[in-house]
Design a protein around this nucleic acid. Structure first.
Lengths: 233, 233
DNA sequence: CAGTATCCGATGCGATACTG
DNA sequence: CAGTATCGCATCGGATACTG
């Protein structure tokens, strides 16, 4: 563990949550993930051994509480009150990043799995047309073989993300480069303009296509990003 | 530099200011230090080469602006707008630490130089009796030889910290263990109670001694700390 | 004072493999 | 699925010495 050797509480706080990867682990838990592998989806580049180590440390300092419902059941990781109070800090950091990190996305930052996981999480359920099962296929021609095709299934208020064809009638097919959809998600580009530019193509009923952009969420920081870019221009 | 390889702005922000030592360097600059060695006083355990490296990085990402008034003059480091906007984040982290880091101060976290530097910075000038030159000697019998004795000189709205006897009449002498004064500073202990317990001794005119605790500031997070400890008890 | 250059050692952490 | 164990490299950063 980091030891700054200072009594200042900024230092002591930074020792706990400033360690490499830790803020992202906390972010993931703030978004609601409680299972080890779910958390890991939010930080896929982190090795599982390191994630386990960080979770132990966070438990030790009282940010995370490890819960095992019944013996033998898989553990769940929950934020404590202290952990929950990190929310404003992590959010502020995200907004700061959205506002001040100017550079375009680098190639190495693109990750379809992470993007889709994020999208799944923030589907605007109350904006989804009710009483219908909706199946959207996402196609990313430039992604690696295994990540080229995803299905988002929304039904009765629940959202599922599949990597295997559910074999149902498709409501929509969304085809895009990884970059284009990511930039829409982050607020770097406008969805309508990107469709205009033919960098995203949506196939399906016109009404469903229009609805799509309503219930598809955006990153929590997209508004800030958008505003920052607008101000600059 | 850290590279999380994620488009999320929390990650991209953390890449910039989540690196080891960086939040403390920013904290120091938010407190007003602009010269290399002044900044270094706030992070004395950091090597100068590493500090230089971090400052370069911060300049590169637009958090710090390096300014040389006249050629040959020593450089000054100023926070940019982006840097200034880190203030709420750093402060929030400090308050979080004050509230949730339960452990007592460890021996290795004590540092008289850092404490006195902090004290000097936050003297409540408007609470200091006017029209008088005030010289306070601080004695720390348990400190290392070179750090046993300090002088705080307040005059005409300016505060100086000396390590050599200014050779003037002393208004007050404050004698304390490093721990005791540090804990008063951080809000872990009450000043009056600590004096009662004879762990701090003040010599001088009664009125000056009473005034002392009024113009001596406390850490910016002491209130939060105090409240957290009170709640627990 | 205000840093830079160099060296070298600790360790953080990634990759891989393995277990219940 | 939910992790643990082990290995080995890279790099981070501390110490020291040096410069204008």
């Amino acid at each position: 563990m980091i030891d700054y050797g200072q009594f200042c509480t900024v230092a002591r706080g930074a020792e706990v949550i400033g360690e490499r990867w830790t803020p992202l682990v906390v972010r993931e838990m703030l978004c609601g993930s409680t299972r080890f592998n779910d958390i890991h989806r939010g930080v896929p580049r982190m090795s599982t051994s390191l994630l386990a180590q960080r979770l132990r440390k966070l438990e030790e300092v009282g940010v995370v509480k490890r819960v095992t419902a019944t013996p033998g059941a898989p553990a769940e990781y929950h934020l404590t009150g202290a952990g929950e109070e990190l929310r404003p800090i992590v959010m502020a950091l995200g907004h700061w990043g959205a506002r001040w990190i100017g550079s375009r996305l680098r190639r190495g930052q693109l990750d379809v799995g992470f993007l889709m996981w994020d999208i799944r999480r923030f589907v605007q359920l109350d904006a989804v047309p009710r009483r219908r099962r909706i199946v959207v296929q996402f196609r990313f021609p430039d992604a690696r073989d295994a990540e080229r095709c995803w299905w988002l299934v929304i039904d009765d208020g629940s959202v599922d993300l599949c990597r295997d064809d559910p074999g149902e009638e498709l409501t929509l097919v969304v085809e895009s480069s990884v970059l284009a959809l990511t930039e829409i998600w982050t607020g770097d580009r406008d969805a309508a303009a990107t469709v205009q530019a033919r960098e995203v193509r949506i196939t399906g009923a016109a009404r469903d296509a229009r609805d799509f952009w309503r219930w598809l969420g955006r990153s929590a920081f997209a508004g800030t990003r958008e505003q920052a870019l607008a101000t600059k221009a």
